[in-house]
Write a protein that binds this DNA or RNA. Structure first.
Lengths: 233, 233
DNA sequence: CCACGGTAGATTTTATACAATCGATGAGTC
DNA sequence: GACTCATCGATTGTATAAAATCTACCGTGG
């Protein structure tokens, strides 16, 4: 939705590649991203890299300090909870506004995404998983007349993806998500919107719970202050 | 909060000046912002202008089409309602998380902002009004451990400001806001957090109602689709 | 008369080069 | 021995110039 079809500009391409690299853990949290090095790595000049970093800062992936550079954002427990709280708050609101307006074509689009979802899971494609998952959620909300909420949730889904990649190595968790998505489609088609909203919250909470379990196990970080970061290995 | 104290870089300065110009209506919605003209106007090169436009796109003030340029975003009724709905949803949440953790210094900071608020209103400084109003609201939420929500609300307040400037020419409305802020401080100091949350919602809803009244009077735009724009005069 | 193709102008996008700023390291002094 | 100050190195920030792209207009052909 953010990117129409394919990259029309170099900066946008670098944004995607850098985002994927951060999501994949190529650049762990705390890494300093030097414009010069990025430029050479991707075979472009520094200007596209620069603009990509600014874009990623707006998306919350990096933090830019003037004259010091861009560093990959830390993942704090406070922000994990905040992000998932926001999703539980905003997504059901979008769902109940959007789905009642659905036409058959919208359901068909949903089904198409679901098929690609299953394919990606069968192939074990973790990178595609997050992208398609976000696509699915946003497709549920296309008919909502809440443009600002939609763009916020789109950003939250990307952040969510970054967290989730620490955990969803197992195909099992991905399979559960697939089943829950299918159930969501069924409920929406049946017109049971309230039930679907509740189910959606459960779906989000399940992912959060799993994620927090993994975090609590790996790092002994207590969620005291907001600068506490999650240990990455 | 976003800008520490003063501009450490040219781009940031251009961002502020452009944002103020858009807020003030110097560049109405739909205006095409040519990098060349902006650069000459502000006496800088095109690169800072460019980066400023990207930043403003992330903030939702302009829309950038590749190879075509940046145009000032339209103001749709759907987005007005969306923005104020979000504020009513998120701000009380921040308040009830933040204020119970307040120390005396936090209340003192609030009082200081309130003083500047009164001064700006007395001087009839509309530009400062929006800035200080946002400062006040964000100061209420400093102790909340919800970094993502905080940055989202900060952006919502800026957008709000843009809408509000269409309406708040009268010192009367600004005076009402001032009194409501004072009342909010009182309730928070007294530890009546639930009451303060409710009052905050009322405060936001009042601004929304006024704004919608003005919009309905000036432009005959019905909030049908999301591309419907508000007429500016 | 309408539609298609080509050319010219303008604008954005990218690359290269230069200047300013920050952090650190080292010497010098109290 | 500890602290202050200055110089050095590295990195970012900015300006200037070339390349790619799009829009609009004009002419030609059907």
């Amino acid at each position: 939705m953010t990117v129409p079809l394919k990259h029309r500009t170099l900066s946008a391409a670098i944004v995607d590649r850098l985002r994927q690299a951060i999501l994949a853990g190529t650049y762990p949290a705390g890494t300093q991203l030097r414009q010069d090095a990025m430029a050479e790595t991707y075979g472009v000049s520094r200007i596209p890299v620069r603009e990509a970093l600014f874009q990623l800062e707006a998306e919350g992936f990096v933090r830019i300090v003037p004259h010091k550079g861009a560093i990959v954002s830390e993942l704090s427990l406070d922000e994990i909870n905040d992000v998932f709280d926001l999703r539980c708050l905003l997504e059901p609101r979008l769902l109940s506004q959007s789905v009642p307006r659905f036409a058959e074509a919208d359901f068909a689009a949903l089904d198409a995404i679901q098929v690609r979802f299953e394919t990606a899971i069968a192939a074990g494609d973790v990178a595609q998983w997050g992208v398609i998952n976000a696509e699915f959620h946003m497709a549920l909300y296309t008919r909502a007349r809440q443009p600002r909420t939609q763009s916020i949730v789109a950003a939250l889904l990307q952040t969510s993806d970054r967290y989730t990649r620490l955990q969803l190595s197992s195909t099992a968790a991905m399979g559960i998500a697939e089943q829950e998505h299918a159930e969501l489609i069924r409920q929406c088609r049946a017109g049971r919107f309230d039930e679907a909203s509740g189910y959606l919250v459960g779906h989000i909470e399940a992912v959060r719970a799993d994620l927090l379990r993994v975090v609590a196990r790996s790092g002994a970080a207590g969620g005291e202050t907001n600068s506490r970061s999650v240990a990455l290995e």
